[in-house]
């Protein structure tokens, strides 16, 4: 695996001068993933914060080929790009390997783009799909998504006098993608960059459809001080709210063991979206959330102990 020094001499896939908020968590994820490719990459992105902040005409932050089509179709669009590449290879019109990477936010992946993703993965296109998962529709103002965790306050399922935020747990998309029997599926977090880089390298070395779900703290939607982006990302892992694991050809493996699990409160209390959980009356909900996390972690350990 390449170390940071080796990666730092590769061309940065993103320039500065994009308009993501100060302290945003996705540009690093994009850089970590794309820098892990030894071969040239071509990027396809869904509508969302990533695409909007990096491509305001006439300023593109992309140093690599980049295509945006619409919100729910980055996987389908990428499948077309990959098919064109295959046709050109067959007709001897193009030489050299290219890695295709589709990015989508959690809205563009868990919700509106779910069908497109599932279809493209099932068809077996040779591409890596990366969900940069900030657990809400950030671009349009922090609305809930299927990835929003239970108890989080969003603008479409806010905490209020008679509500404690989102009532249902998020769907487990990583597991759903594993159920597609892909050669490589992983869950990662930007705060554990070497783990993410290793996973991206593995994905690029694996032919066929790959999926990585990367948790991305959003300082605006989650409500925390911008310098904490990486720390919050690590806390999600250390509390087992967001375990790091991979599923390689059906074999599950936790890639980051958590021997001393921190209480989830340590993760939650740093974020405004969970602030209401610490008010009197929500003790039971907090306890339930802890139980849910514990149960999921135990189940995951049974599937693939580190």
């Amino acid at each position: 695996m390449a170390n940071l020094k080796e990666l730092s001499v590769r061309q940065d896939p993103l320039t500065g001068g994009h308009r993501a908020c100060a302290g945003c968590g996705f540009p690093q994820i994009v850089r970590m993933v794309l820098l892990s490719s030894k071969d040239p990459v071509v990027v396809i992105s869904a509508t969302g914060c990533l695409e909007v902040t990096t491509t305001i005409f006439p300023f593109s932050a992309w140093n690599v080929p980049f295509l945006h089509n619409a919100f729910e179709n980055s996987a389908a669009t990428a499948s077309g790009v990959e098919a064109a590449y295959n046709a050109f290879v067959r007709k001897n019109k193009i030489k050299g390997k290219i890695n295709f990477v589709a990015f989508g936010g959690d809205g563009g992946t868990y919700d509106i783009g779910f069908q497109s993703l599932s279809g493209a993965m099932e068809r077996g296109h040779d591409l890596l799909y990366v969900c940069y998962n900030n657990e809400a529709y950030m671009n349009t103002g922090v609305q809930r998504s299927g990835a929003t965790p239970r108890g989080a306050s969003t603008t479409t399922e806010p905490a209020g006098k008679v509500s404690s935020g989102k009532t249902r747990p998020r769907k487990d998309l990583t597991k759903i993608m594993a159920a597609h029997n892909l050669p490589y599926v992983a869950q990662a977090a930007g705060g554990y960059y070497m783990d993410l880089i290793k996973k991206a390298e593995k994905a690029f070395a694996t032919p066929g459809p790959k999926f990585i779900n990367v948790l991305q703290p959003c300082r605006l939607g989650w409500g925390y001080k911008p310098e904490l982006t990486m720390e919050i990302s690590r806390l999600a892992v250390q509390t087992c709210v967001w375990p790091l694991y991979e599923v390689e050809n059906g074999i599950w493996k936790v890639t980051m063991n958590v021997r001393e699990k921190k209480p989830i409160a340590e993760f939650l209390k740093l974020q405004d979206r969970f602030r209401h959980l610490f008010k009197p009356g929500n003790e039971q909900l907090l306890a339930d959330l802890q139980k849910e996390v514990d149960k999921n972690w135990e189940e995951l350990l049974k599937k693939g102990a580190p």
Binding site: S8, G16, F26, P27, Q28
Partner: peptide, 27 residues
């Protein structure tokens, strides 16, 4: 690796300072 704005200037694998045109001061 953690800078969101590609604002840490690296030359030949060595940190050499910041790009203040693009650093947003996130800390």
């Amino acid at each position: 690796i953690v800078c969101p704005d590609s604002s840490v200037k690296v030359v030949d694998g060595k940190m050499t300072g910041f790009d203040y045109d693009h650093c947003k001061g996130c800390g």
